[in-house]
Amino acid sequence: MQSPTANRLRPPFYLDDSLVGDIVIQPSYTRHIDAGTFFLHKDVLSRASPVLARLISGITSVSVDEPTTVWKLLIPIFYSPKVPIDFVTNLKGSDGLLDIDLLRTLLDAGRKYEAPSISASVADALMHEPAVVAKKAVGVYALACAFDCPDLARFAARHSLSTKLSFNFSPTEPSLEYMARMSDYHRLLDHRRRCADAARETVHSSAPQIDQPYTGSNNISSSTHFLRSNASKRLWNAITILSGSNMNTISYSTHLTTKCYDQGYSAHLHQSWWIALEDLHRDLEYQPTEDLVRSPSFTRKLLDGIMRCSGPMDASHANAVEVAEILIETVYVCLKEAIDKCKGQDIRCTYCR
């Protein structure tokens, strides 16, 4: 018989090849298309799992409860801590989205066989695929809590912020059916509240300001909704570079005035723009994510504000469009920083048993 080292890396090194390995694994045939027999190595399985070590001791063949699809995911992790490039792809369903049922079965197998490498490798693989996790973030968060994966729980919680959630726990909702404990859901909601508070504070000043009525002119109107000092500083720096001015007060377009003074920075917006920030401030309560700023709806509100201003399409309007782009990126960065700060403070390992 050929040595395990010589065979374990030859694809497919485990399927329907009786010349490979010294133990036959026969998964349950839950579906006729799921049939398959695996020829593996006892030494590899025994090192990966004490349960499997006892199960395969003294025999050459064993039947297992998990289907072939799960064992095709388990085996590469048993043989190497680095999962294959297509690992996450194989976790997707026919709809192209992450198959949460398959993920749960896989993690369940890792717990059953007392193989911590399974949950660790799965968590690491998913954390390198944020776009995949984001589409099923609540389900991934629930499983991460249930299977003791605190880093993945933090990661999934962060990427769940774009999902609207009910403040009433309802196990019948598809996205929440994997939530093992109500306390996990409540912690997720608490985290979202803190992220929402931090994000909304970025585009809202607690200092009282008097709103000036909009008269249709191009003058700047003050509002309680303008950027906080850190965001205003970024914006002031950007406008300074753009305008070539180093004055403390810069009105680069009719839509924006930035100020630098002893106590810090401020950015006062044209009424048409602070109405857009007002809407953003409201939306962040339910979707506390920086992606809202780059959404087509927010961009459209800024551009519509420019078009509604009186006067011809002159250089002032062109400047306003340019400043709108800077405003979007400035607010995006500042929102992301504010939300990311909540990650270490609010998502803790106490989520998991």
Rank of each mutant, 00 (worst) to 15 (best):
M182F: 13
M182K: 10
S183I: 14
D184C: 15
Y185E: 11
H186F: 07
H186P: 06
R187E: 09
L188V: 15
L189F: 15
L189H: 15
D190G: 11
D190I: 13
H191K: 10
R192F: 07
R193Q: 13
R193N: 11
D197K: 09
A198F: 13
A198C: 15
R200S: 01
T202H: 04
T202R: 03
T202N: 04
H204K: 06
S206D: 15
S206H: 06
S206F: 09
A207V: 09
A207M: 10
P208M: 05
P208Y: 06
I210V: 05
P213R: 08
Y214K: 04
Y214E: 08
Y214D: 03
Y214V: 04
Y214G: 00
T215Y: 07
S217T: 07
S217A: 03
S217P: 01
S217C: 09
N218Y: 07
N218L: 14
I220T: 13
I220A: 15
S221K: 06
S222G: 11
S222V: 09
S222R: 06
S222D: 11
S223Q: 03
F226M: 10
F226A: 05
R228Q: 08
S229C: 13
S229Q: 04
N230F: 10
N230K: 09
N230I: 05
S232W: 12
K233W: 13
R234F: 07
R234W: 11
R234I: 11
R234P: 04
W236C: 01
W236V: 08
N237V: 12
N237E: 04
N237I: 12
A238I: 08
I239F: 13
I239R: 15
T240Y: 14
T240S: 07
T240R: 12
I241A: 08
I241Q: 09
L242V: 12
L242S: 05
L242A: 04
S245V: 10
N246M: 15
N248M: 14
N248E: 15
N248F: 05
T249Q: 08
T249I: 12
T254R: 15
H255C: 15
H255G: 01
T257E: 01
T258I: 14
K259V: 09
K259P: 00
K259E: 05
K259T: 14
C260M: 12
C260W: 10
Y261D: 13
D262A: 11
G264W: 09
G264Q: 10
S266Q: 12
A267I: 01
A267M: 03
A267C: 11
H268I: 11
H270K: 09
H270W: 14
H270A: 15
Q271K: 13
Q271Y: 02
S272A: 05
W273G: 00
W273E: 00
W273L: 04
W274Y: 07
W274F: 14
I275M: 02
I275T: 05
A276R: 00
A276P: 03
L277I: 02
D279M: 07
D279Y: 03
D279P: 01
L280D: 00
L280Q: 01
L280C: 01
H281E: 01
H281Q: 07
H281G: 01
H281P: 01
R282W: 02
D283S: 02
D283G: 00
L284P: 02
L284M: 15
E285G: 06
Y286G: 04
Y286I: 09
Q287I: 06
P288V: 12
P288F: 06
E290P: 02
